[in-house]
Write a protein that binds this DNA or RNA. Structure first.
Lengths: 194, 194
DNA sequence: CCCAAAGGAGACAGATCGGTCTACCTTGCT
DNA sequence: AGCAAGGTAGACCGATCTGTCTCCTTTGGG
């Protein structure tokens, strides 16, 4: 078994549930069943572990969303697929993404509020990367560059809003709500659905 | 000068910039220029201070938004006023709300991800309270109860999305974007302007 | 005038933090 | 067989954390 991967996955679980600063190294070690020396063999410091955790979650989340998009059909069905995926995430219906405690990157950006901090920047990179997925979808259905730009911005905004509403207020149906808003918006923007 | 208020205001600044768990009591004391005994005279523990900080920011933010709403005119102009206020907040143009580092309650909910934690619940209460302001606006322009419910939910979602986009990704124009989405949505919902 | 309340400065305790270290064990390659 | 790499268990270090404590000063009402 890969101890490094084990450490990262376990650290993510704890950071995600309790926050990054609230979780100590020893807690991670105990939960992962790994010796301290092993951790410091793979990572130079706690900060290095944190960066690895952010990168790990980025890949995990992005891959999950891509697979959900690909499973949802052609054209604007992909957009509906995105928000259906959010809906499953919030309701913890997708075993790949359990449990739901909000967006790890929003939380991390809160703990590293300075935009110049490396962790904050990685979080921004993640959001940008997800927004690019939205742009790709819109591009693929023949939207103009301007429609792609505005549409991706809007879908991203709706997604973030839904995540916050679901986590902070417990409004688990925010995913469906955002999905309806998204479809209405795209129709009004003039993007052709198939 | 009221030492208690001074402590709370100063703790908020630090918590808002660096996160709650990352800021120690001694840091708050030094910044506020207050002795440790004074802090523990007013608060039984750090947790009690945190709760006071959350309550303080709730009042501050709510009062600010109400004043901005009242200054923006009648009817749906109030909705435009809300998103203009967000726009000013993000761009740090309103001296009352400087600096901008995202939403304190979203950050706090991230550090206390368990929805049953008192801090998390206070954050949910805050969001609910702000949503009620939206509902009041819609009610005042003669929207039906169903329109009020859906409309307030949607405005809240757009607001949260804009805050996250502005803070995490640095998209400071997300407030204006969300405002345009809001006006389009309300028109499409059938809420009469004026 | 007097005394209690509020505050200042800071030592102190006990716990926990991140990080280093020693000593020993397993594994796989040559 | 032998040896290096990666791992375990946990003592240990200095720093920092929350919270308590003592001693002293200021202040304001009766």
């Amino acid at each position: 078994m890969d101890k490094r991967q084990q450490l990262v996955a376990c650290a993510f679980e704890l950071f995600y549930c309790h926050g990054i600063h609230a979780v100590g190294i020893n807690q991670v070690l105990q939960e992962a069943g790994v010796a301290k020396k092993t951790l410091y063999h793979h990572f130079s410091s706690k900060d290095a572990l944190i960066e690895a955790v952010v990168a790990y979650r980025h890949q995990e989340f992005k891959n999950w969303l891509i697979s959900r998009i690909q499973a949802s059909g052609e054209g604007l069905l992909a957009v509906q697929g995105v928000f259906a995926a959010l809906d499953d995430w919030f309701h913890e219906r997708d075993p790949m993404m359990r449990p739901f405690h909000g967006c790890f990157f929003i939380h991390a950006s809160g703990e590293y509020a300075n935009p110049e901090h490396p962790v904050h920047q990685r979080c921004a990179d993640h959001k940008q990367s997800i927004k690019q997925l939205f742009a790709d979808i819109l591009d693929q259905v023949g939207a103009t560059p301007e429609q792609v730009r505005q549409g991706a911005d809007t879908l991203a905004l709706l997604k973030e809003g839904a995540i916050v509403q679901a986590h902070v207020c417990g409004e688990l149906d925010a995913g469906r709500q955002a999905g309806q808003l998204a479809m209405t918006y795209l129709k009004q923007l003039g993007v052709q659905s198939e």
